Amino acid sequence: MIKSEGKMMNDKKQRHEDRSGKLQAKTGNIIFNTINYIVFISFTLLCMFPFYYIFINTISDNSLVRAGKINFLPKGIHLGNYIALFGINDLSTSFWVTLTRTIVATALMVFASGFVGYLVTKKKMWARRIWYRMLIISMYFNAGLIPWYLNMSMLGLTNRFAAYIIPAIVAPYNIILVKTYIESIPAELEESAKIDGAGYFVIFRKIIWPLSKPILATIAIFGAVGNWNSFTDSLILMQSNFSLYTLQHRLYIYLNSSSNLKALMQSGGVISQSMIDNQLNSKVISYTISMITAIPILLVYPFMQRYFEKGIMMGAVKG
């Protein structure tokens, strides 16, 4: 009887200790999760604020923007800046140049990366190891800016739209990602197609390409963002062809002219009212162009995110 009562007391004590331990663990988890949410929400807001600040300045009254009175909330909301922006010939032209470049160069890069990535997985490919090593070497070594410009000039790619497309077709890093991903696809699928008489191109088109959508979507994001945001090639190669300036190049021009006028004002130089007005207009235009350059990527990424996450993990470079 005494032993039974002792056992019952021990069982109660053990259950009490278990409940206390679970309560403490639950409290610790709540505190940890709360701190995590606070930190990550704060970090997200800090990352989003620059976009929000630029956006509210583009839709607010321009006189208030010029006076620097728009900080947290928009005032005098309107969409006139966006409408007027596309009325400027050089900006609308630059927008279509950038859009066309992004679509064409990205599409060709994705196809080339997919097909070359598939070919370098084939042991029968002539000098496969040499070509693959050359791809890897090109990621780490380059001749520099001046030799690159001289090479583009000798190839006749200056002041031509092809200068945006041809160099972007071969992307070594993307080829490596695709190669690694394709190697994870079961070899039995390809072998069964070979038995049915399918060649490499048919296998690639009907089996490899559909199964590689996650990694292809991933490199498509890389290519689209890179082409959309690029302006160095436009700055260096399109010096005599203003109609081929990219949107980022136009933004650079407006930012540069705005900074020059501001420096002149601060140095006490003699400037006219029209120059001041141009400087102020450049500020508003710069904000608006910045939003136009950022919005397409922000709209596309959510739809590609599920492919991006899967592709970047399965196509990660292995040691």
Rank of each mutant, 00 (worst) to 15 (best):
I271D: 05
K206T: 01
R205D: 12
D233M: 14
S212P: 01
G268E: 02
G226I: 03
F222K: 11
N229L: 04
F204R: 08
I208C: 04
A220T: 04
L261P: 02
T218Y: 11
F201E: 02
L255A: 09
N241H: 04
L237A: 02
T232F: 11
I219C: 00
S286V: 05
D233C: 10
S240W: 06
L280V: 07
Q279W: 11
M238W: 03
Y287S: 08
N281P: 08
G223S: 15
L211R: 07
N227A: 13
L261T: 00
R205H: 13
L251W: 14
T246S: 11
W228N: 05
V225H: 03
A263V: 07
K262F: 15
L237H: 03
V225C: 03
A217M: 09
P214K: 01
A193Y: 01
I236F: 08
S286R: 09
R250Q: 15
I236P: 10
L280H: 13
F201Q: 02
G226C: 01
V225Y: 11
I253W: 12
G199V: 07
F242L: 06
I285M: 12
S272E: 03
A220V: 00
A193H: 02
Y252S: 08
K206H: 13
L264A: 15
S259I: 11
Q273W: 11
S267M: 06
K206W: 12
S286F: 10
K213R: 11
L216I: 08
K262A: 15
S274Q: 12
F242A: 03
F222Y: 15
G269Q: 07
K283C: 13
N281S: 12
D277W: 12
Q266T: 09
Y287R: 10
V270M: 07
Y287M: 13
L255H: 08
S274N: 13
V270T: 10
S212C: 03
S257H: 14
G197R: 05
I219K: 00
D196P: 02
Y287T: 07
S243P: 04
K283M: 15
P210W: 13
K194G: 00
I276E: 11
S286I: 04
D196F: 07
S259A: 15
I208R: 02
M275K: 08
Y245R: 06
L280P: 06
I276C: 02
L235W: 08
Q239L: 11
S240A: 11
N227K: 00
N241K: 09
S267I: 00
L247P: 04
Y245L: 09
